[in-house]
């Protein structure tokens, strides 16, 4: 998909988001207490209007440029083979947060490191077993004793 099509979709999405912010989220989640020279809603509304205006400009620019010969691709990375890896990395981090909350650092950290090693192409079983254990222990010592930041 070329960048202009994606810009049009992004612009439309931003416009919808700006409308939701302006008519739904700001009235419901930002109180207007009427005290002082400026409402607490002023800056959120200003940001929202900028997003909406930006969305309109993106749509207009992509409509005007869609026929031009300059059809840049979004990113060469889109065409690279490891398409699932970002998703797997995000899932591994989400998994870490859950395991960390339920079972603590010593369960979560080695699992995350091992999972990410595999996602990033590590295939050496010994390394996948040893590095997470060593890194977990070293980082625990650094944070808990060196920096006085408890991890439990």
């Amino acid at each position: 998909m070329n960048i202009y099509k994606l810009d049009m979709i992004s612009g439309a999405g931003l416009l919808v988001l700006a409308l939701v912010l302006y008519y739904l989220l700001i009235p419901n989640f930002v109180a207007d207490n009427g005290i002082g020279a400026m409402s607490p809603r002023f800056f959120p509304k200003l940001g929202t209007m900028l997003i909406g205006a930006g969305g309109c400009i993106l749509i207009a620019a992509s409509l005007r440029s869609s026929g031009s010969p300059r059809k840049a691709e979004v990113s060469s990375a889109l065409n690279q083979p490891q398409k699932l890896s970002p998703l797997l990395s995000a899932a591994a981090i989400a998994g870490f947060i859950l395991v960390f909350q339920w079972f603590g650092y010593f369960f979560a950290a080695p699992l995350l490191i091992a999972a990410l090693m595999i996602v990033f192409g590590g295939r050496n079983l010994l390394a996948i077993l040893l590095l997470p254990a060593a890194a977990t222990a070293i980082l625990f010592a650094v944070f808990s004793f060196g920096l006085n930041l408890p991890l439990q």
Partner: peptide, 18 residues
């Protein structure tokens, strides 16, 4: 890379949590 980025990831998480 499979050593560098997992270590960076855990550093990010511990740093934010700390």
């Amino acid at each position: 890379r499979y050593v560098l980025y997992p270590v960076i990831a855990i550093l990010c998480l511990l740093g934010v949590y700390g």
